[in-house]
Design a binder for these strands. Structure first.
Lengths: 238, 238
DNA sequence: CGCCTACAGTGAACACTGTTAACTGTTAAC
DNA sequence: GTTAACAGTTAACAGTGTTCACTGTAGGCG
């Protein structure tokens, strides 16, 4: 029935089907709904069959996380490339707004990626799961853009003695990821990311509904504010 | 053995024991570890016995959440009352630092309270579970203090036309909870809370470890920054 | 005091979950 | 054309939340 081909092709196909079914269940009923047996049921398979593709339920979830990170990264990348000639500030604005839109459109996926990822105090330090690698690629997206903005037009930043020695030391350690930006500039960039993340998390996780029924206007105002710290002017005043 | 007393007393005692055991399991192995059977096992009871005290597993978790909110609220309250004569700015500083300390000391509990609480789009609007009421009491702690700070020494705030009509409308709707503060001042207060929440969430959920190994210095710097927006001067310069 | 009711708690069972072992057939490789 | 790898199944195990029928004991009331 399925037009033949090498066995690997068939295997890759069902593997994709499995992840698609898992994704479907995730958007339908949250993380709890994507169970091993539920996925198997979705494909008309028996539960043990999935163990030919994933060593455990947790591995399936991890693969799903990695895929979601890549999907989010890709979505944000070609969101900026729709208009190639927009300036860097507008691209950061598109990135931030795109992230919020994606989070609001896919709350279950966002919750899986960014909510309650309580990291066990790992002894070795850097883990190498594909999920973490995908997360790094996602983070690089932001770092790259901010570094470009900085190198195009350096924005005023706090001096080293304003930050304190310990903080400067940690920030300079991250300097290579930010293309040699000075600690004060990295501090402001981290500030941007932290506030953006916090805002979206609070909105998606419903922590903001108790005070703001619709956080869109607040988000817009905050975006202007944190963009201003990076030397960007307001993209859309009102 | 247990010195007698009315039956209600005994019931309340075991109810407290149940929640204590649940709490113990929570800190030991995260949310997933606090299962109905595990709690029963902890007390030497059979699982169905717990249904005399909670109608379901979810109800037990909800009660645990409510208790944790109250515990956190109480901890933060008497943290400020240790020194009665400290000024309001220092009390806010204590509140913010106390919240961070509690979150870092009890990551599992913090995750249960503030992580991935994906709110189902509820039609009625305001739910009345004890957990939400406890959350409101917790939020009131912050709102009260900020309102006191405002009324003692009003800080400069953005004008209405800087915020936009929609945002001003939403903020004025929350004015009663902030003791009649103007929208611009509520905006800054919300800003404070949003950034504080975002920072702590990122740190506890490990989203910050990839760039800052120890976020204490960064948190301190941010605290100074967001406190400055409320007219407070730096409590500890370094 | 003695009955009787309410209630905490038990045992067995159901439907579900992730996971493993032993076993099929089909299919690609030598 | 034989063989070995592999997808997939059936059966089972341990664990979960939950329900039902049942026990004993303790409290309230006549």
């Amino acid at each position: 029935m399925e037009f033949g081909g090498s066995r690997d092709r068939r295997r890759a196909a069902t593997l994709a089907e499995i992840k698609a079914a898992a994704r479907r269940l995730l958007v339908g009923g949250g993380v709890a709904a994507v169970g091993l047996r539920a996925v198997a049921r979705e494909l008309g398979l028996t539960p043990p069959a999935l163990y030919r593709y994933f060593p455990s339920h947790e591995a399936l979830i991890s693969a799903l996380i990695a895929d979601l990170y890549d999907e989010l990264t890709a979505a944000l990348m070609d969101l900026q490339c729709v208009e190639e000639d927009v300036d860097l500030g507008a691209r950061l604005y598109l990135l931030a707004n795109g992230l919020r839109d994606w989070a609001l459109a896919h709350p279950a996926e966002f919750g899986l990626l960014f909510g309650t990822a309580v990291p066990e105090p790992d002894g070795d330090g850097h883990e190498e799961t594909p999920g973490h690698q995908a997360a790094m690629r996602f983070g690089a997206l932001f770092k790259e853009l901010v570094a470009q903005i900085w190198h195009q037009k350096p924005f005023p930043h706090p001096a080293d003695d304003e930050l304190g020695t310990v903080l400067v030391e940690q920030l300079t350690a991250e300097s290579e990821h930010f293309h040699g930006m000075p600690p004060g500039a990295i501090y402001l960039s981290l500030n941007y990311w932290t506030r953006l993340y916090g805002l979206i998390c609070m909105e998606v996780f419903g922590q903001l509904h108790w005070v703001l029924p619709d956080a869109a206007a607040y988000f817009e105002a905050q975006l202007f504010e944190i963009g201003g710290a990076l030397g960007l002017d307001c993209p859309a005043p009102e």
